[in-house]
Design a protein around this nucleic acid. Sequence first.
DNA 1: ATCTGTCAAGTGTTGAACAATTCAACTGTC
DNA 2: GACAGTTGAATTGTTCAACACTTGACAGAT
Lengths: 234, 234
Amino acid sequence: MERSQIHRVSVADQVAGILRQKVLTGELRPGTSLQEIPLAESMGVSRNTMREAMRILSLEGLLKRNIHRGIAVAQLSLRDVQEIYHVRRVLEISAILAAKTPDPELLRDILDALQQYEAAVQARDWVSAVTHDLHFHGLLIRFLRNKRLESFYQKTIAELRMGMVLVDQRHDHPGILIPVHRKLYELLTAGRLKECADILLQHLEDSESRLAKVMDNHRLAQSAAVLASKSKIS
Amino acid sequence: MERSQIHRVSVADQVAGILRQKVLTGELRPGTSLQEIPLAESMGVSRNTMREAMRILSLEGLLKRNIHRGIAVAQLSLRDVQEIYHVRRVLEISAILAAKTPDPELLRDILDALQQYEAAVQARDWVSAVTHDLHFHGLLIRFLRNKRLESFYQKTIAELRMGMVLVDQRHDHPGILIPVHRKLYELLTAGRLKECADILLQHLEDSESRLAKVMDNHRLAQSAAVLASKSKIS
DNA sequence: ATCTGTCAAGTGTTGAACAATTCAACTGTC
DNA sequence: GACAGTTGAATTGTTCAACACTTGACAGAT
């Protein structure tokens, strides 16, 4: 009894979780190189345990390992963003089309996410808005009722989110997207799945091109800054 | 120059590769429990390195880790098989539909796989036939031109294959499936993608139900054997 | 027979050491 | 001054040995 509540987690897994949070929240920015000994000491664990944690995150794609050269927080390229949105299109649209007899509880969760998203936008809390936006989409995947597809999707979204903290959150106005999400929810509950999938496809394509543009601007600004600092040195 | 050829791999990765092979070929059967120290000694590496290798494989889903209770080769349930075939349907059909302007070289690779598959069947080499069958399907995924989807697919297929070595290879006659694959290839090169996807869907569903039936028989035989041995003891 | 305490075996974690590799600074030569 | 080669510090990869903690089985007590 109550066995489900007692779940032991190894220290390595906990460390991986903490590191994962730091990466996803942007506390550790893409490109940052992580050294084993200082990090292990700062978290009060041994070097081996830290290595296991880093191994986990590198297999998740959040860290990138270069043998004998160290581990760094992964950096998304434009190609990566394209791939990730491709994954989103394939999975989310499959999910929508699989929602013929949707679980009412799941529909309620989706509505909750939608409302929290709208509330966050009202409050001009963009970080929270992004969170609930991604949560909304993540819930859609549950229509597939497939743990493998769900965890792959979540892993992929984690990569995307890591890439998004790179850019300034205030660049964009997620409020524009409220009507689209509303529409998606309505079509979904009405069982008009094909139309819903079409709108979702359009939405994802818009979203991708917007992010790509922002990232490109950011990249240009970055390299300009590097050039400026270099010229200042010489 | 020639830097691409020189790829160093850590010992842990190599050990993981060897273990992976042993699992996929069935040398280590599902359910087998693996102990760190004996395994590490048998392969001439330290316990830590072996732990890293096992961590890799458990994150791939090939090993299952129970904290403080050891690691065992994962065992596929019928639910797992259903999930994996679901993944196959989603990805392979998306891939087919994405093959509007197929890369000629890829088409040739697919034809090669098909011919090797047919040759294996002619030679009554079922193991090789399964290999080339899965290779054929794996090549289809390349139409997606998406590394994340490809590696996820390969990881999933690896799980499936592990489940398939469980059952007796001689139960089935893969030769029956030659015409279907031939047809898939023809429709694909003809650009009749929708029809191709339909046949593929049918093929995957047939394949799934066949495997499910075989696994169920196997499961019954297993539990019967267990019962028999128990009654012999008592 | 059920329960409880003990114990061995195995995993989780630590810390220290050594080997291998990279990178940058330093040499000397041209 | 430019360049190739050398040296050495820093970091990662790997090994080893020890201890803590958990589990499962066994034996003895009830």
